[in-house]
Design a binder for these strands. Structure first.
Lengths: 106, 106
DNA sequence: CAGGATCCCGCGGGATACTG
DNA sequence: CAGTATCCCGCGGGATCCTG
């Protein structure tokens, strides 16, 4: 019953807590890695597939769609390139903070 | 087959990319919210249960155990209080970055 | 190459009941 | 209150095949 609700209004009172909102967005690790890659340069589907070793086409498709919907990335329909939007670039701070922690403590 | 491996060495070549490591640690949203709460003050099991509206006892138990193992939080066995470790406090930068993005863009 | 469509399995995690 | 122990279900996501 939580599951059904959470589909609509986001998990864990995501509508009030900004941290929860982002947690909901990034709650699977593939998503963060896609963003990590696209922050470096635009990439095509198969490039991401290679970089994200092990991801299935289905999952990559779904994650990319979600990120496009969230305006984090955009797709050039002519060239088939995915790239970070201006909004999405703000996620760099999160990724950087993660990298900092990971390098130091893990 | 990925699943079995990933249990040992972490998901998505987590052993080489620091971002992937942290992504693996934070790959479920409950974990981030637990950290968010404990960054504010130490809390007991039932307090977390209340704050994290909707979490099951089983899940909270598992997440807390994992975080203790990761040296992110620690438990006082006498008082039953959970609190952030010094190492864990470094996660504040990630949480803050998340809050910043969430407030501005979501 | 870029995805859509299916099929299917595992495990993350909820509900509930019980113990120290 | 602070968990532990089961039982069970849903869906996230892998594998595979097909299309433009």
């Amino acid at each position: 019953m939580v599951t059904l609700e959470s589909k609509k209004k986001g998990i864990h009172s995501a509508n009030i807590c900004p941290v929860a909102k982002v947690a909901d967005l990034l709650s699977d690790s593939w998503t963060m890695l896609i963003i990590r890659d696209l922050l470096i340069s635009q990439m095509r589907f198969c490039e991401l597939e290679t970089s994200l070793d092990g991801i299935s086409t289905r999952t990559l498709t779904l994650k990319l769609k979600k990120l496009v919907t969230e305006k984090v990335i955009s797709k050039d329909d002519a060239t088939h390139y995915y790239s970070i939007t201006k909004q999405g670039q703000n996620l760099a701070q999160i990724i950087d903070a993660m990298r900092g922690y990971g390098e130091k403590w893990m």
